[in-house]
Structure formats: structure tokens, C-alpha cells
């Protein structure tokens, strides 16, 4: 059977309109759920960087659990610029790190979340973001109130190699970050150095204050994490230095 051109035109037009309608309807209907998932995930990472929300595997309703923990521990948040001044009137949660990193250093604004733990200590949580091997990597870092010692780190990625670079999300990679210092003894920003060479590489290099082992087979991703942390901490450096000297 051979159809006329008109038939083909009408057929394809109708098909495209129907498909467009289905897809726009689905996107609109599912958007609230997707946004909610993203928000919960953001809150989860902020909590986990301060080693909170540890019970998530046992929580019946994880979304509710995260919300409750978040309201309980994250007591305040504010926004700074790269010179270290506080910016008023901007919600820290609304900051899109991807957008900020595309701006020039002077125009960038950055979020800081304040977390009050049960033992009365205060932790400061920052957001970091950078490029991995296949796509973006990002995370949150929590600092003690000396603005030097890392309290906890959580990392995530979009498309790193499963089993290799993707392992940056695992505890075995992130837990050695704890207790590391980001400023060296003379007060210069050193951030974190990542050493290739398997387990104990950082120790062998003699860099106990700032060194962390890379993942074997995931060196490029590990190095990207190092670069991301160095770059992002440079933006926060002024604020941290001000606070340190106070």
C-alpha cells in the first residue's frame, strides 16, 4: 500500500502533537515529586557531611526522617561572597553551585550551613562542586569551629565509572578526610592532597595533615576531587581566614 504525501504529512503532524502532549503532561505531573527528591537529597548530603542521619537505613519513611533531622540540627544558614563578607537577603538553599561556578570569582556567592550537634559543638558546612572524569562531581564538607579541621565529607557524582571512580561516594574514600587540616602550619591554604599508589600512599608521602589516598583505578576521578576541593576552598578562603583570626 502506497500512501499519499498528504497522508504522511498529516500522520506525522498528528503523531508529533500527541507525543508532545503526553510528554508535557508527564513532565508537569511528575515535576513536584522530582523536585522533592532533589531537595531531600540536598538535605541528606548536608546532614551526612556532618556525620548525621546515620540511621537512614532503618528509617521507615526516609524523606520524613531527613526533614526531621535537618530541622533539628541545621540551625542556621547564610550566604557569603568570595571576599568573605556576608550577603543579606539571599536564601542559602536556593544557591545553584553550577551557576555560581560559571560566574567570575568576584560575583560568586556561596552557601554556609551551621549545624549544632547534640554535644553543643558547632560545625560549618560548605558546598563544593567541580568536574570529574565523565561529568560533574560535587559534595559537602563540614568543618570544626576552628575553620581548619575537616569534620566530615560527603561526595557524589553524575557519571563516574562504576566500581572505580564512582567509589568516591563510599566511606573508605571519604572517611580519611576527617581530621585533616586545610591550612598548613604557616597559615597558607593547602586544602587536600590526594596521592596515587594505593592504600597508604599519603602516609608514605609523609603528608599526614593534608594527604588522602586515591582510589586505585580511579585516579582521574580522585584527582578531580582534589582539584574541586582546592578550587572551592579558595572561594571560601577569605571568610575562613577572617573567622580564624577572630
Amino acid at each position: 500500500m502506497k500512501q499519499s504525501n498528504t497522508y504522511i504529512f498529516v500522520y506525522s503532524s498528528v503523531m508529533v502533537i500527541v507525543v508532545a502532549a503526553i510528554l508535557s503532561f508527564a513532565t508537569m505531573a511528575l515535576k513536584p515529586y522530582q523536585d522533592k527528591n532533589k531537595e531531600i537529597e540536598k538535605k541528606k548530603y548536608i546532614l551526612q557531611s556532618a556525620n548525621l542521619a546515620a540511621d537512614i537505613a532503618n528509617a521507615k519513611n526516609t524523606d520524613k526522617y531527613i526533614e526531621e533531622e535537618f530541622d533539628k540540627y541545621i540551625t542556621n544558614s547564610f550566604v557569603i561572597d568570595t571576599k568573605g563578607n556576608k550577603k543579606e537577603g539571599i536564601d542559602a538553599y536556593s544557591i545553584n553551585m553550577k551557576l555560581e561556578l560559571s560566574k567570575s570569582v568576584e560575583e560568586r556567592i556561596l552557601p554556609i550551613y551551621i549545624c549544632s550537634l547534640d554535644d553543643g559543638s558547632t560545625k560549618y558546612i560548605i558546598a563544593v562542586r567541580g568536574k570529574g572524569l565523565w561529568g560533574p562531581v560535587w559534595g559537602n564538607m563540614a568543618f570544626n569551629d576552628d575553620f581548619n579541621t575537616i569534620y566530615g565529607v560527603v561526595l557524589d557524582h553524575k557519571a563516574e565509572t562504576p566500581g572505580l571512580g564512582a567509589e568516591i561516594t563510599q566511606d573508605f574514600f571519604t572517611s580519611p578526610f576527617k581530621e585533616k587540616k586545610i591550612f598548613n602550619t604557616s597559615g597558607k591554604l593547602e586544602a587536600i592532597n590526594i596521592y596515587k599508589g594505593g592504600k597508604g600512599a599519603a602516609k608514605n608521602a609523609g603528608d599526614l595533615d593534608h594527604g588522602v589516598d586515591a582510589i586505585s583505578g580511579g585516579t582521574i576521578t580522585s584527582k578531580s576531587v582534589e582539584k574541586m576541593i582546592k578550587d572551592c576552598l579558595r572561594d571560601y578562603e577569605n571568610y575562613f581566614k577572617n573567622k580564624k583570626s577572630n
Binding site: V19, I22, L23, A26, T27, L30, Q34
Partner: peptide, 17 residues
Amino acid sequence: VVIATLVILVDQILKAF
């Protein structure tokens, strides 16, 4: 077109739930 539509739907549903 049929494949692409269904795949986008699956992707959106996974993202939501």
C-alpha cells in the same frame, strides 16, 4: 518516536519515584 517517548517516560518516572 514511539521508542523515544516511552524511554523519556520511563526516565521521568524513575526520577520521580
